[in-house]
Amino acid sequence: MIMSQFCPRCAEPAATADQFCEGCGAALRVNRSGTVAAAAAGTQRPCHGCGQPFATQGRLDGEYCPCCGLHRRDGTDHIEIDLGALAGVSDRGHVHVRNEDAMALGQRVAGKPATLAAVVCDGVSTVHTPELASRAAAEIALDILLEADNAPEHTAEDRAHAAVAAADRTVARLPAPGRRGAPCCTLVSALVNWPEPGRPEITVAWVGDSRAYWLAGTEAEPARLLTRDHSWAAEMVTAGVLDTATAMADARAHAITQWVGAGSAGEPGVLTLRPAGSGALMLCSDGLWNYLPGSAELAAVALPMIEHGTGALKAAAALTAVALERGGRDNITVVVIPITVRSPS
């Protein structure tokens, strides 16, 4: 089954029999979308200020409207992607000029229940072209997570490691001219496999301070933060030097200690969760968790939207709305994957 006449990643036309996209090599037997697809479509939009059609690509000042001078929006200001079994929302927020977060999410078309995967990346805003780093990292990591498995001895954790490594290499190859630092970003990914129906196995990997939460209303598998930030604040707290409140109030709190891209060091965090009860897996950038760090609060917003494995988009949108209401000072990206667990009885 092919989902569209066009590659969902780069919009290249595709024949129904194609396994891979002629344009970008993406696996077409995968239903996927993300920030890159939204940006590719968004460049065709007219200027949000004066309505002038976009026609000056390739020029030095092509990112500005030739009529009114406004910086062009590339279609990533607000993205909603609903693949049914999982959904994501990414928003520029109220303050930043562009959305430097990126998400990529998809499901393998073969298999039932389908293998699901999602990646959220947050470009480090002080470097050169952070939005290109986050987009490239999210896309390549999703490629690896969803690629058809030719080596069955590889575990899901191996695959998660491979996805981060590929993202690292891809971002390190991005051009880094000028005085600003080389492009880099955070990454959090999730891979949901079903070793047996109703018994999901969730593999999470992360680098930096983008997070994965398990959201649930029951004690069978309690709601909690799954990841541990690679950030100055988190390291101070872990080392017992500062308490959480003091550490987070410091100007260096958000400085990340590990990243994806040139000069990265250290291993990504990787963990596997086999939930004993139903709930939802949520990936987000710090644009959300800065406002809503607690898993109970997050669950209270998201879970009412989810019923019988649906409502992922509504849940992601509700979480994003909270961050926007509370200030929206950063880019906000949220991916929600409802997980239904059948009790073993």
């Binding site: 406004l70 910086h71 520029r92 927020g93 000029v97």
Partner: peptide, 10 residues
């Protein structure tokens, strides 16, 4: 608005 960017002069 905050967050808007414009070409002030070429």
């Amino acid at each position: 608005h905050v967050g808007e960017k414009i070409l002030a002069a070429r």
